[in-house]
Design a protein around this nucleic acid. Structure first.
Lengths: 254, 254
DNA sequence: CCTCAGGAACTGGTCTGACCAGTGGACTTC
DNA sequence: GAAGTCCACTGGTCAGACCAGTTCCTGAGG
């Protein structure tokens, strides 16, 4: 039962890795906080006792991870950034684009996240929050004659309002990220067809159904309806064989 | 309603960014594939017309993102890696550890993910897969007298089996990552108390309940039970005020 | 007093060239 | 054919230089 050879390969510790670790540790222990500045590269060279190349390699990694941002000419040094979903988004996008997580999984994931967000929203909402959500629906209704771009923006605002009410920023971030990835994957197919008013009207109706469930405080209904809507909206982009796992997220009492 | 200024700040394009883009594009277009090798750094210098420092900074970023791996002395050059969830996991961990997503949100997220995974598993499982899940439960039963460490390993195996059956690697990855983060956050409080056999037995009973629902193919029940179990398991670590949003994921018909 | 041009004194981005400790393969030697 | 040596090459690190750009101080001119 115990693992036969729990040995890990001993990889050589590289200097720039050590520098990254030290900076990340300082962040985790709140010694460094977002908004603060790191010393300039040349100062870091002195502090770490490494060459500038090495320090720079560490900084580039941190920058690509969204931890800091360097700007040329800024005498204050690299800025420590607050978390943004950008880095997370980048990884998820890469996962989808380069490594072939298929569209069905992404949509399935969205159905899970969005459904849960709506259930939480239905059960946790205050009257003020309900009003805020209704306002975004009204915005959708008004932009339906303006154009797809504007309609889509109002759509995003709706989902963001829901996510806020659901009191869970993780669901919010993941849902937002996955939504972006899905859209980028089907953007070529979506471009022309989505401009039709009929489809926008259908989308609006879907959103109104969810709103109704949220207004009624009926969590399971909100989850069920939103999942069904997502399925209706996206299933057309999937080959039939890929739809089965999605169907498992729909229907019966849940 | 239209966005007032949809302009993005023009950031200077850095050379190493261009190199990263070129390599990532080659990956996305399948010109480069996992398992293949990149030219050596000095060859890349010639191909890109940039200095070695610049090329190296690009390679370090790619390496930190889990795209490639460089080994000193390897005459074949950097290796292009298949996707691993490591990079994604890193970002989620950072989100949680450094940027103060609180424990309640993490647990809530786990309830959502685990519940959904169990629902999918209940509905999609084959008989073989059911047998595999039953085997991990049997392993838990046998390790309960051995020690917490072994029991915990069997526990992980159970959840991994479920995730596999759910046919969704995204849920799998996220759930696994979040589980790790949660455990690391409460590890100080968990250390002593969890060693008790009574608690392990309770955990085993919880898992058996979920298994029963999966065996019966009852998706909603599997989701409901697993969420309830997670709540029972973790709520004790939360202040009472933080439990309310979690309760919204439980109870009635859902 | 305020304004504004000029100029240090920095910043990060890039380049060159060098050295080192390893690796792997070819080449010699037995 | 096997064993040992050697060399070309790898990535990791270093030192030093230059450039374009920012910030800020300073001093001249209003």
């Amino acid at each position: 039962m115990t693992s036969p050879a729990p040995f890990e390969p001993v990889r050589p510790v590289r200097l720039y890795q050590r520098i990254i670790e030290q900076i990340e540790d300082a962040l985790a222990s709140r010694t460094l906080r977002p908004g603060q500045r790191l010393p300039s590269e040349r100062q870091l060279v002195a502090q770490f006792g490494a060459s500038r190349s090495t320090v720079r390699e560490a900084l580039r990694v941190l920058e690509s991870n969204g931890v800091i941002r360097s700007r040329p000419g800024d005498p204050n040094g690299p800025e420590i950034l607050p978390f943004s979903s950008q880095a997370l988004s980048k990884q998820l996008t890469r996962l989808a684009r380069v490594d072939g997580v298929d569209l069905a999984e992404l949509i399935s994931f969205r159905m899970v996240l969005d459904g849960s967000a709506n259930m939480l929203a239905a059960r946790l909402r205050t009257d003020d929050e309900l009003a805020a959500i209704e306002a975004t629906i009204e915005a959708m209704r008004q932009t339906i004659d303006v154009g797809y771009q504007q309609f889509s923006e109002a759509d995003v605002a709706f989902h963001e309002a829901i996510a806020r009410v659901s009191r869970n920023s993780l669901i919010q971030v993941c849902n937002h990220v996955v939504r972006g990835v899905v859209l980028s994957l089907i953007s070529d197919k979506i471009a022309r067809s989505r401009n039709s008013k009929a489809l926008m009207r259908e989308s609006l109706r879907h959103h109104e159904e969810v709103l109704e469930a949220i207004r009624a405080g009926d969590g399971p209904a909100a989850a069920r309806i939103s999942r069904r809507n997502l399925y209706d909206y996206y299933a057309g982009y999937l080959p039939k064989a890929d739809r089965e796992p999605l169907l498992a997220l729909l229907d019966p009492t849940d």
